[in-house]
Each structure stands twice: as C-alpha cells, then as structure tokens.
Nucleic acid binder design. Structure first.
Length: 502
RNA sequence: GGUCCUGUCGUCUAGCCUGGCCUAGGACGCUGGAUUUUCAUUCCAGCAACACGGGUUCGAAUCCCGUCAGGACCGCCA
C-alpha cells in the first residue's frame, strides 16, 4: 500500500530560482516536484524570483527561466509576470518589507551590526577548522556598545548585519527524511543582510515564505543545513514555519552535484537539442521517485494523480543520459506524424534545408516547393529512428538536395563486385523507367521491385545499391519510401549518377 | 576538519517500516537471437546487485551495533 498522501486544504508551494543563470535541470526538477504537490492537492504553485544578488542577477536569465518552465508545462498561478495576492514576487521589489523586519530585529537586539573585515573572518575560519571546530563566527561584535556601533556607522565603516542565533537544538520533521535535529552551536551568528537594503538569502526567504503563506518548502538537499537557520529566524520574528521536504540531489556520473562542468545542464539546451518536454518531465521525476510498481511511463496528468512525495528517495540519483534518450525516443515514436512534423520543421529550417513561405515551404537547394503533407511523409519515415528532433536534418537532408555525394564502395552490398552493382542498378533503372508518373506510388514500386528481386539470391543485391544510390547513405529509410517521395525524375537521375561511378 | 545526509545490478529503482512469498523483481544500457536490403522499430533470451563485519532470530536485503565508502553544507551566493 502506498503511504497516505498529504491532504491539506490549501497547499501553497513555491519555486524560488535566482536569475543568475539559465534554468538548470536541477531547478526544473525541484519545480516539478513542487508543481505536482500543488496540483494534486488543488494548491498553488508560485514563482518567486530571488534576485537579491544584484551583481549576478539579470533580466535575461529571469526571462529564460520563465520560458523554460513554461515550455516544460510548469505553469505558476502567482509570479512576477502575472502578479498575485501576495506580490510583488521579485525580491528586489520587496526591499522595504525586509527593511522593516531587519529594523525590528535590530531594535530587539536579536540582530547586530558586525564590523569585522573579510580577511579577519577568513583567518578565523581557517583557524577554527584547523583545530577541528565548526568554522562559525566568534560573536565578537555581538556585544559592541551602542555608542561604538553608532560611531562606526557614522564613520561609514563597512558592516553587515548578523542574526544572534539562540543556542538550542533545532528539531524539525522533514517529509522525506523524517525527524532531523541540528545544534545551533554549529551554526553561529549568520549574516542576514549586507545593510538595511541588502538582505541575504536566508533572511529574505523566511519573510517571503511567511508573507506568501507558503505551506510547504520543497527544495534540494543542498538547503538542508539552511533549514535550522531559517527556523531560528522564524522563531525570532514570530513567524510560522512551513513543512519542509528536502529532495535528493541529481548527481553527475562522477557522483558530485550536477553542474556546468559536466556538460549540458540547462533546460534550454535540451530543448534546442530536440528533447521533448514530456520526456524530460518523465525522466526528471524518476530521478528520485517511482510509483512502487513497474510502470515507467508517466504523463504530467498521470503524475499529478499518482505522485507521492513520501515515496521520494533519500539518496541522490545520477543523471543518466541513456535513459533520457530512450524516453525521448519513446515519446517521439508516440507522437502523431503531423505533430512530430510541426516539431521538426524548426530544425529543418535551422539547418538551412527549407524556408517558410506563405502556405508552404521552399527547398533552399532546389528552389522547389514542399508542402506540409510532403514534409510529414518525410518526417514519418524517421519517426522510429529519431532519438532527438535535431537529428532530423542530418537524416533527411538528401530529400532536400539537388545532388548527393556518393562513394562507390557504399553501393556494394556485402561482397558484391562492381559489375554486379552496376547490373543491379541497371535493372532497377530499367524496371523503374517503365513505370509512368501516374503509377509512381509506393505500393506499385514495392510490388514491382520485390517481384524483380526474386531473381536474386537475396533481395539485398537489388535493394541495397538502389537505396544507397537514392540516399547516399548506408543507413536510411527504405527504397520504396524514398522512391515515392523523391518522384520519378529525381530517382532515375540519382540512379544514373550512381552508375557513372562504376 | 566539523555538522548533516545516504549506501540493492554499470545506471534509475522495487522490496526494508509490518523478518519467511527474494533461487532479490522491473527499466535503461550491454551481449546474443528472431524479423529485415541498411539503420531503426518490435519481439525473445542472457549477463549483472543486497558495501563490509558482528549480533538478534528457526530464518535477515529487511531489526540492532560497529566499520567503511560516497555526497551536501560550513559565503558579505542562492
């Protein structure tokens, strides 16, 4: 029996990316788990942009992140672009709010100014680590007199604001990991702001989650040690704390946290390589979750029904591109040909093979027109051969070229001699030239050629040279398909040019 | 170094809570085979794991203890 699912009237979860880079695979996965938890409970999935790092945050990244999430189908119901009851949803637009809380904390002496230099702090960290202690702040500035603080502030000395963490054990219950206990002695007085108008992550997040009425914080395991800090802050400010769930991390094959140095990690680049969102979603959710039975294929809708956060794994999972490729191929094969063609056209355009005209497409190399129906016929031939959409251009380019490059040796099937190949092509040519344009259909071509192939000890002797002559490829779609799409004239021309090589 | 987390086929995992149905199941990949003009698809078969050591028990992947290994975090990033 699956564990009982959480049922709350109003689940509110959020994805809180910082726009300091493209949409990372891991961020998207965290978004997916949040989204599923919200949807299956009739709750809200909220997007909050955490752009307090002014140096690294950009609007372009923000835009890219939002596009990527939408492309994956992770639509939010409140966010910076669409607003909502608890906005604004961009942290830089909430500075006034944080300032109030900061001032209050300062006034209540739950936070203090710290004037220690970064060099001093770094030296301290090194020292503490060397003697085997947690590298926490010494608390040196905690008891500075008000006069001295004022004087330092007036002099414009560099400072930060630290939270005076009460010494206690912080206990919380994680949805995935169960009861967790941390000793605040190991945390120390963390910096919560660089100034009254420059809040830092651990501080801003607590206020936003409270004000935005977030009920569940579902995030990566890398935040596990931030949680006690945040709980302490919540307690100091009298804010309720949400339920936590820390997801296992996605790891690279070298078992470290997946990052740029391992290659492709941005959702955008997977899209550009021709991965389908449903494949990515299916793949992502199985990195840490499974239904408990043997089903492996899940659409977003079925995930909303079946996903159970209590079944998520505790250990990190390695990103296995083979499985993604398999899933992508699976979803490509299950698409309607018309739909698949629609997805493939941009890749054909990008490769410079075709160009959009009014109601049709122009083949760049020949100047001829090709309509949607023909494109669909071509794409369909490769539906079960495609692992990514981007492969479509390389696989089908011979349909769009005036001339194809061909090497003589490729025309030989097994151990055929040049003479045999030439004969084979000649027989194909002669039988095909008998067929009139009107009868040039796949069925007819197939029937005719197959009949003739009976004269050979193996069909390959007739069909292989023909297919290679038409496509220039050792691996391609079948000759009857190619013949019917290429048409009589082009087909015969290609056979003629192939013969010249022999 | 400290804190915390985790350990079932190469990889994702089922099973663990509530010991026997586990000669440990599925999937990807890999190997072989069938279909086939090629590639791919499809189908069939095979290879392959309970980290280690103790204990508890009639019986342990499952419970307990220890060891080892891996990871995350320890920032005036998020």
């Amino acid at each position: 029996m699956p564990s009982e699912k959480i049922k709350l009237d109003k689940i509110r979860v959020r994805l809180a990316p910082s726009p300091t880079g493209y949409l990372h695979f891991g961020t998207a996965r965290v978004g997916l788990f949040n989204y599923l938890l919200a949807k299956q409970n009739n709750g809200s999935f909220i997007l909050r942009i955490e752009d307090t790092d002014k140096e690294r945050s950009t609007k372009e990244f923000e835009k890219g992140i939002m596009e990527g999430l939408k492309w994956l189908g992770l639509e939010w119901s409140e966010g910076p672009d669409i607003g909502g009851e608890y906005g604004p949803y961009r942290q830089t637009e909430r500075l006034k709010i944080y300032r109030e809380y900061l001032e209050k904390l300062l006034k209540e002496k739950k936070a203090y100014y710290c004037f220690c230099s970064e060099e001093e702090l770094e030296a301290q960290r090194q020292y503490r680590m060397s003697i085997g202690e947690a590298p926490i702040y010494s608390g040196k500035c905690a008891d500075m007199s008000e006069e001295e603080v004022k004087k330092n502030l007036a002099e414009g000395k560099d400072c930060v604001i630290r939270f005076k963490a009460p010494v206690k054990k912080v206990v919380f219950n994680d949805l995935i990991r169960g009861r967790l206990e941390f000793d605040s002695k190991m945390i120390g007085d963390t910096v919560i702001a660089k100034g009254l108008d420059s809040p830092l992550y651990n501080f801003a997040v607590v206020i936003d989650d409270h004000l935005m009425k977030i009920s569940h914080v579902v995030r990566g395991e890398d935040h596990l040690s931030n949680t006690p800090k945040q709980i302490l802050l919540q307690e100091a400010m009298g804010l309720n704390h949400p339920v936590y769930a820390h997801l296992p991390l996605v790891m690279a094959p070298d078992k470290t946290k997946l990052s740029k140095r391992h290659g492709t990690v941005s959702i955008e680049s997977y899209r550009d390589d021709g991965y389908l969102p449903e494949a990515l979603i299916n793949f992502m959710v199985f990195l840490g979750w499974n239904p408990g039975d043997e089903r492996e294929i899940f659409s977003m809708d079925s995930l909303v029904k079946e996903f159970d956060i209590k079944r998520v794994q505790k250990g990190g999972a390695i990103f296995n591109i083979e499985k993604l490729n398999y899933l992508n191929g699976f979803y490509i094969r299950s698409k309607k040909p018309e739909k698949l063609t629609e997805f493939c056209i941009p890749f054909l355009e990008k490769a410079g093979l075709i160009e959009k005209k009014k109601d049709t497409y122009a083949v760049k190399d020949t100047g001829e027109d090709v309509d949607l129906e023909e494109l669909t016929a071509i794409v369909s031939l490769y539906q079960e051969r495609l692992k990514h959409l981007s492969e479509i251009a390389n696989l089908t380019d011979f349909f769009f070229k005036k001339d194809i490059s061909l090497e003589k040796d490729k025309l030989k099937w097994k151990q055929m001699a040049d003479e045999d190949v030439k004969n084979s092509l000649e027989r194909s040519e002669s039988v095909l030239s008998e067929i009139k344009d009107a009868n040039w259909t796949k069925e007819n071509l197939e029937k005719t050629l197959l009949k003739m192939s009976e004269e050979y000890s193996s069909r390959g002797e007739l069909l292989w040279p023909l297919r290679v002559a038409l496509s220039g490829r050792e691996a391609s779609a079948g000759p009857f398909d190619i013949l019917s799409i290429l048409g009589r004239e082009k087909s015969l021309n290609r056979i003629k040019s192939a013969k010249k090589l022999l």
